[in-house]
Simulated scan of single mutants.
Amino acid sequence: MAAEPFWRETRDGLQIAVRLTPRGGRDALDGVETLADGRRVLKARVRAAPTEGEANDALIRLLAQALGLSRSRLSIVSGATARLKTVAVEGAPEALATAAAHLAAS
Rank of each mutant, 00 (worst) to 15 (best):
E54Q: 14
R19F: 04
R23G: 02
P93I: 04
E54Y: 05
E9C: 07
D12F: 05
A88D: 07
R11I: 04
E9H: 00
A92C: 08
G91L: 06
L84Y: 14
E90I: 06
L62R: 09
A36Y: 07
A105R: 15
V41R: 14
R71N: 09
E54A: 15
D30H: 10
V87S: 09
G25F: 08
E90N: 07
E9L: 07
T51D: 11
S75D: 14
G31H: 08
V77Y: 09
A99S: 13
L69W: 04
L74K: 09
V89H: 01
R19S: 14
T81F: 11
A48K: 09
R8H: 09
A28P: 10
A64F: 09
D37N: 15
V87G: 10
A17T: 01
A28S: 12
E94A: 14
L63R: 00
T21V: 11
D37G: 10
E90A: 14
L67S: 04
L96F: 09
A48W: 06
S70C: 08
V89A: 01
I16G: 01
G91P: 10
A95N: 05
G25S: 09
A64E: 05
G68L: 03
E94L: 09
R39A: 15
R11C: 01
R73W: 00
L96W: 06
D30S: 11
A100I: 00
K85I: 10
P5R: 13
A66F: 10
T34H: 00
S106I: 02
P93D: 02
R45I: 02
Q65I: 00
T10P: 12
A105V: 06
A49Q: 13
P22R: 06
L96H: 07
L84G: 07
G31A: 12
L29P: 01
A64I: 07
L69N: 02
A3Y: 02
L42I: 13
A104P: 13
P50H: 03
P22V: 04
A97V: 11
A2K: 11
G79L: 00
A44S: 08
V41E: 12
A36C: 05
T51M: 08
G79Y: 02
D57S: 11
S72I: 01
A95G: 06
S106C: 10
T81C: 02
G91N: 08
R61F: 05
L67V: 08
L59S: 00
L63E: 02
A36D: 15
L103G: 09
T34E: 15
G13K: 02
V18R: 00
L35H: 00
W7Y: 15
V87K: 07
D37H: 12
